[in-house]
Structure formats: structure tokens, C-alpha cells
């Protein structure tokens, strides 16, 4: 119990120390705002920030969905054909190692539509863990089980549906959890790159806007919202994974 409360206690202590230091040392708000003024900045325009958060989250979840579908289906394609594996794998790795900020401007120009281009950017970041984890999961059953399926005359399709796919589910779920956080990062990076030329409504845009205007408390409020959203996505997807695992009974 005390261990559970420890992070909250520590966080609260840090907030008080921060507040005290800013007040005591008379630090100007445009360098470091006190927690209380960050809170005030949020209360001053909760709706605006919430709408921005919703916009960023829409991009995040759309990207996560696309990445999950693409990643899982490409991993399945690879598992069923060695040719597909040889053809796909190097490109998936190439996509993974290319830094998003470097290609985001290109994508934004090519795609045109701001929402779609943000989703494409975030998908690129979120794709790899889902793809790699699913591929690992599909290959995870021990060779003896594959032998057993062969012995009973099961073809590739039945081995896939009855053995490889169920075995890949936990791997896919942990990939989903990793990619959830990455999709948020991808969405924010893409928004930052797009700047005012983009969708102009996400949280990252609020951060840029606030920094141009030296509205540090508002910038911090947006940052806190982003951090909370990241934590919520991580725990939410973790809980979703646990729920699915429990329902299948192999907790």
C-alpha cells in the first residue's frame, strides 16, 4: 500500500518544491512557470486544450489502428511465404531506422491532406513494433507442435489459424502497447513539423503557438496533458492486453 502511494507522494513533494523554488527565487514565468500558474493556464481555457488533445488523440488512434492492421497482416504474409519474408523484411527495417522528422516534411507535401499526412507519419512510427512482435509471435510455437500439426495432416492454413495466430496474440498485444506510446510521439512530431501549415489544431501546435507567444504556463499545461495522455494510453492498452489474456485463460 505504502509502495503504491510512494510515486504520488514523491510527485506531490516535487510539485511543492517547484512551486516554492519559483516563488522564493522570483523566477519569471516566461522561463519556468510555477505549477499553480500552469494550472491556472489550463483552467483559463480547458475547452481549447481539450479539443486539441482530442485532435492529437484522433490522429494517434487512427495511426495505431492502421499500424495494427498493416503490421499484423504483413507479419502474417511473411509467416506464410518465405519469398514474402525475404522481400518485406529489409524494407520494414529501413522504415524503422529512418527518423520521422527527416521524412515528415516530404510526407506532408506528398499527401496534402493534413489529417491524413499526420496519420501516415504516426503510422510509420507505430508500425514496426506491431509488425516485429506479431512476426515473432507467429514463429514462436516450438517445432514439435508444428511437427504434430504435420503429423495430423494439417495444411498451412490450419496451422496458421489453430497454432500460429493464437500463439501470436500475446506478442501482438505487447506490440500494441509499445506502439500506442509511439503513435502519440509520431503524431506530436508530425504536428510539430507541420506547424501552422498543417492541421493547426493538435496539442503540439498549441505548444508551438504558446512558445511563440512566450505563454510558458499554457505550454506547460499542454505538455502535462500530453504526458497524461501517454500514460493513459500505455496503461489503457496494458489493461486491454491483460483483459484479453485473462479471457483466453492463459494469464
Amino acid at each position: 500500500m505504502i509502495l503504491r502511494l510512494a510515486p504520488w507522494f514523491f510527485g506531490l513533494l516535487a510539485l511543492f518544491a517547484w512551486e516554492g523554488a519559483v516563488r522564493g527565487l522570483d523566477v519569471p514565468a516566461y522561463i519556468v512557470p510555477a505549477p499553480s500558474s500552469v494550472f491556472q493556464a489550463f483552467v483559463a481555457d480547458p475547452l481549447g486544450l481539450a479539443v486539441s488533445l482530442a485532435s492529437t488523440l484522433t490522429v494517434t488512434f487512427a495511426a495505431l489502428l492502421v499500424a495494427a492492421i498493416l503490421g499484423a497482416s504483413m507479419a502474417i504474409g511473411m509467416a506464410t511465404s518465405r519469398f514474402a519474408q525475404a522481400a518485406i523484411q529489409p524494407w520494414a527495417v529501413a522504415l524503422q531506422v529512418t527518423p520521422l522528422p527527416a521524412i515528415a516534411p516530404l510526407i506532408i507535401i506528398w499527401v496534402g491532406d493534413p489529417f491524413t499526412s499526420l496519420v501516415v507519419c504516426a503510422t510509420i512510427v507505430a508500425f514496426f513494433p506491431l509488425f516485429a512482435n506479431t512476426a515473432t509471435g507467429l514463429a514462436s510455437p516450438p517445432p514439435e507442435l508444428a511437427d504434430l500439426f504435420q503429423l495430423y495432416g494439417a495444411g498451412r492454413f490450419r496451422t496458421l489459424t489453430l497454432l500460429r495466430l493464437p500463439a501470436a496474440v500475446p506478442y501482438f498485444l505487447s506490440g500494441l502497447r509499445i506502439s500506442g506510446g509511439l503513435a502519440l510521439v509520431g503524431a506530436v512530431v508530425a504536428e510539430l513539423v507541420a506547424g501552422s501549415g498543417g492541421f493547426a489544431s493538435g496539442l503540439a501546435y498549441r505548444i508551438l503557438e504558446a512558445s511563440y507567444r512566450l505563454e510558458m504556463p499554457r505550454m506547460f499545461a499542454a505538455l502535462v496533458l500530453l504526458a497524461l495522455a501517454g500514460i493513459a494510453i500505455n496503461y489503457g492498452l496494458g489493461a486491454f492486453g491483460d483483459w484479453v489474456t485473462r479471457r483466453r485463460g492463459n494469464a
Binding site: 514439435e144 493464437p166 500463439a167
Partner: peptide, 17 residues
């Protein structure tokens, strides 16, 4: 024919789910 031969491995190799 499939099913005429039974095979048991060193590990139980059951489907864990």
C-alpha cells in the same frame, strides 16, 4: 493415415491457451 500414428514428445507441447 493421419491419426494412425500418435507422437509424444519430451515436453508435453500443449497449446498453452
Amino acid at each position: 493415415q493421419p491419426g494412425e500414428i500418435g507422437y509424444v514428445f519430451q515436453d508435453a507441447t500443449l497449446l498453452p491457451w
